[in-house]
């Protein structure tokens, strides 16, 4: 049996041009990514604060503790939260679309398939929302790996991962 091809146009309001919506979202996600990169400057400074320079030689400061990963990274990841919420706001745009120019909401409301309207309003925004959150999370994992890599074990405060969650939630 031939598999039915899933087209994006079937998952948005009929005739809705989702191009600008996705394009704008790409820009926001791109911006969020760029913003997150600035975290490395913080990371560098935090690492530098673990050492002092004595007669031109770097030496570890005894008892110095690396700044917490969560507190440091979180402000730089907020772009992804904004992007995700932005994506979710498309739900409202999609419902509103059925009231613009005509009242196509009447047609959607009298379809034998009652889910069609909601399917076409929620699918794309929700997928984008989830995709952005996932991307942000993967990036977070990568940054965490970098954090662990550059931080000497003796300067690492315990429970970094747990602390990260307390910052997020």
């Amino acid at each position: 049996m031939k598999k039915k091809r899933l087209k994006i146009s079937r998952l948005v309001p009929p005739g809705f041009d989702y191009g600008p919506e996705l394009k704008a979202l790409c820009w926001i996600v791109g911006g969020a990514l760029v913003l997150s990169l600035f975290w490395f400057t913080d990371l560098r400074e935090a690492r530098r604060a673990l050492f002092d320079r004595y007669l031109g030689v770097l030496r570890p400061i005894p008892g110095a503790v690396m700044r917490d990963f969560g507190k440091m990274v979180w402000p730089y990841m907020s772009g992804f939260a904004v992007a995700a919420l932005w994506a979710l706001s498309f739900v409202g745009v999609h419902y509103q679309y059925h009231h613009r120019v005509s009242k196509s909401i009447y047609t959607m409301k009298r379809l034998p398939n009652r889910l069609e309207l909601h399917l076409r309003c929620w699918t794309l925004p929700l997928s984008c929302f989830a995709a952005i959150l996932l991307a942000g999370f993967l990036l977070l994992l990568i940054y965490y790996a970098v954090y662990l890599l550059v931080t000497p074990a003796e300067n690492l405060a315990p429970d970094q991962w747990k602390k990260l969650w307390s910052v997020i939630l």
């Binding site: 009929p14 005739g15 005509s102 009242k103 196509s104 909401i105 047609t107 009298r110 379809l111 034998p112």
Partner: peptide, 29 residues
Amino acid sequence: TTKNIARISFATSEHSFFPDLTARGHAEF
């Protein structure tokens, strides 16, 4: 209900077509 609603159709001066869809697109829908 959804079981028999297809037996009723509706045309209104407010219009219930999709403004960005072509005639052909409506036929497909």
